[in-house]
Design a binder for these strands. Structure first.
Lengths: 339, 339
DNA sequence: GTGAAAGCGCTAACAA
DNA sequence: TTGTTAGCGCTTTCAC
C-alpha cells in the first residue's frame, strides 16, 4: 500500500520501502542514498535504483529533525514588486546557489506591521533554519536581537543598528552626499528635498538628511518635504515649494523622481529647463532612456557580501560582528542641468 | 539545561520544557498552544505564559512530521530581477497572505537547466508542501506531471500544456493580436517582429506568432526575427531589416522594446517619426513617461486566480482541471504612430 | 479536562 | 560492510 507500480512516484514512499525493495536495512539505505559512510558499491547501486523506481523523495522534515540540523538558510524579504528589492532578491539567490546554500524565502507584505513580521520570523525559526538573512525594512531589531546568539543573522541592504546582528548594506548617507554634491556642482543653491519620512522609509530618510547637510554646507538653502510611502505623496508640495526661486528637486528615490517628472510634465514644467530633478536607486530598466539623474545602488555587492558573510558564519564561528557598507555610483543623466 | 533565564528565548526550548514549567503534560500543552481540543481556560493561560516566558518557538518540522500534514504551499519562482516576475511574486504573496496560506519560495536561477529545477522541486516536495505553485518558465511539465495526483499543482503565468496541472495564465496570443491590430490600425503594412525564440522565452514566442498571423491576415508583410534571451540580441538585425521600407518594429517584450529604442536613438532614428516601436508587458515603472506602446499584462488577476485555485484544491478536491487565461489591456503610448 | 503511549520518517552511534 | 537501537520534537487517539 505504500509503494506502487514502477514509474509512479509517490510522496508516501518512505526509506523503509526503498530499503525493503533493495533488501537492506534503513540505515544502509540512508548511507547509500547520501553517499556518506561505508557501503558496497553494488549495494548502493541497488538502493539507488530502487529509490528511483519507487519515486522516492526524502522527507526533509524527518531528515532534519533526526539529524538535528538544517542545511537551509532563511530569507526574510520585503515586497518584491519594488525592483530594487526584486533585484536584491534575485542576486541573493544567485549568490546562495553559487555557494551551495539552500535558501527558503518568506515575505512580509509591504504594509504589514509588527505582528506579521513576527509571524514570518517564527515561520523561519520554526523550520530551524541554520541562518537568517533579513532583507526587509521593518524595525525588527528588537525582535531579531533575542535570537542573534542562537542563529547567525545578517541584514542585507540596510544598516543594522543593533549590536549582535551583522550587515551588508547600502551606504545611504553617502548616496545622498554624492547626489547633493553633484547638484551643488551644477550651481543650484535653492533646492527642495523630497523624501520619505523615517516611518515610511528609513533609507530615504537617511539619504534625505545627508542631502540636506551637504547642500547646506555647500551654501544652498534647502526646503525639506517628508512624505508618506506612496511615491506621489508630497509631489505637489515639492512643486509649489520650488516655484518661488528654487531650481532643483532632489528625490530620495527614483520612484519619487518619476512621480515628480510626471507632475512636472502635467503642469507644463520643463525638466531640466525649468527645474532639475534627481532620484536615487538607479535600477529601473529604461532609466537611461529617461536620462534619470540618480545613484545606482550596489545591489550586487551587497548581495554577495551578505551571502558571503552568512557562509562564513555558518562554517567558522568568529565572534566579531561584520558590518559592511557599500557605496553606489553617480549616474549623471540629463534630468539635472547646470543652473 | 534546556531552558534559561526569563526573557531569553532559546530555539532549544521544547514543548516538554513549556509543559514542565506549566506543570502539565506535553499533550495538554500542545492542545492549549494551538487552541484546539479540550482544556481549562486558566490552564491555557498558564501554558501560554510559560511559553512566552521561555521564548518557545514550535519546531515546525517536528510538528508537521507528527501531524502528517503541512500547512504551507510551495512556490517555485523564476529569477525575480525581471519586474514582471517580481510583481507576480509580490502579488502571489499578498494573495496568499490574504487567504491565510503560508508560502515558502524557492527560486531557480535564470539560466539553469533541468537538473537544478529538479533539485528545487525536490526541495519543496521534500518539505511535503500541501500544494505547489509554479511560476517559472522551464519546460518542466514532464517533471511535474508525476506528482500531479499527489499534490495539487497550479502553474501561474504560463499556460500548462500537460493534462493534470492547473493554470492561471496570461493569454499571450491575445496580447500579440491586440498589439498587431493596433499597429495595423495605425496603417503599418511593413513590419518587423522581434521576438525571443521558443527556447529563450516561450511566452515571447507565442506573442510573436500571434502578431505575425494577425499582421499577415491584415495584409501586412512581416519579417520575423527571433533572438536569444538577452534583450539586445537581434536588435541590430531588426533595425537593418526595417530600413528598406518598413515602418514598425514590434517587440515581444518591453525589454526588447527598450533595447530597440536605445539602438534607434544611437543610430539617429526617430521614434515614432522614422519607425514605430511596440513592446509587451507594461509593468515597468516609468513606462508612461517613456510613452511605451505596449500591453499591460494582468499580473494581479493571474496571481489572484492562481492562489484562489490552489485554495480551492486544498479544501475541496474537485477532479476537473482548472485552466484560466487572462488578457491584458492595450496601452497606446506614443512610441507607435500612424504611418 | 488531562495524561500515557505510540508513533511520524529519518539519522546516528554502536554493535555485529 | 551492514543491521540494531535509540531517539529528534511534536501530535494524537484513547483511557482515565
Amino acid at each position: 500500500m505504500t509503494s506502487s507500480d514502477a514509474g509512479t512516484p509517490a510522496l508516501r514512499v518512505t526509506i523503509s520501502d526503498v530499503a525493503a525493495a533493495a533488501g537492506v536495512s534503513r540505515a544502509t539505505a540512508t548511507r547509500a542514498l547520501k553517499g556518506e559512510g561505508r557501503f558496497a558499491p553494488d549495494t548502493q547501486q541497488r538502493i539507488i535504483e530502487a529509490a528511483e523506481r519507487l519515486g522516492y523523495v526524502r522527507n526533509t522534515m524527518a531528515a532534519e529533525l533526526a539529524a538535528g540540523r538544517t542545511g537551509t538558510v532563511g530569507l526574510m524579504l520585503r515586497d518584491a514588486s519594488n525592483p530594487a528589492y526584486g533585484l536584491l532578491f534575485s542576486r541573493l539567490q544567485d549568490e546562495a546557489h553559487r555557494r551551495g546554500l539552500d535558501l527558503v524565502t518568506v515575505t512580509i507584505g509591504a504594509d504589514e506591521q509588527g505582528i506579521k513580521q513576527v509571524n514570518a520570523l517564527h515561520r523561519l525559526l520554526g523550520m530551524r533554519v541554520a541562518g537568517l538573512i533579513v532583507a526587509t525594512g521593518g524595525i525588527m531589531a528588537a525582535q531579531l536581537e533575542p535570537f542573534a546568539d542562537q542563529v547567525p543573522i545578517v541584514r542585507a541592504g540596510r544598516v543594522e543598528p543593533s549590536g549582535r546582528i551583522h550587515s551588508a548594506h547600502y551606504d545611504d548617507p553617502a548616496h545622498g552626499r554624492l547626489l547633493a554634491s553633484h547638484v551643488l556642482s551644477l550651481g543650484h543653491r535653492n533646492v527642495v528635498v523630497l523624501t520619505g519620512d523615517p516611518e515610511a522609509s528609513y533609507p530615504e530618510h537617511l539619504r534625505g538628511m545627508a542631502m540636506r547637510e551637504t547642500l547646506i554646507n555647500g551654501g544652498a538653502s534647502v526646503t525639506m518635504i517628508s512624505a508618506g510611502a506612496r511615491p506621489d505623496e508630497g509631489v505637489s508640495e515639492a512643486l509649489s515649494a520650488v516655484r518661488p526661486g528654487g531650481t532643483a528637486i532632489m528625490c530620495a528615490s527614483d520612484y519619487r523622481q518619476l512621480a515628480v517628472m510626471r507632475a512636472a510634465k502635467a503642469g507644463g514644467l520643463d525638466v531640466p529647463g525649468d527645474v532639475s530633478v534627481t532620484g536615487c536607486d538607479g535600477i529601473l530598466p529604461g532609466a537611461d532612456l529617461l536620462g534619470l539623474t540618480t545613484v545606482r545602488i550596489p545591489v550586487e555587492e551587497v548581495a554577495a557580501a551578505a551571502v558571503e558573510t552568512m557562509q562564513k558564519l555558518l562554517t567558522s564561528d568568529s565572534a566579531d560582528i561584520v558590518r559592511r557598507p557599500f557605496t553606489g555610483t553617480l549616474v549623471p543623466g540629463t534630468t539635472a542641468a547646470a543652473v
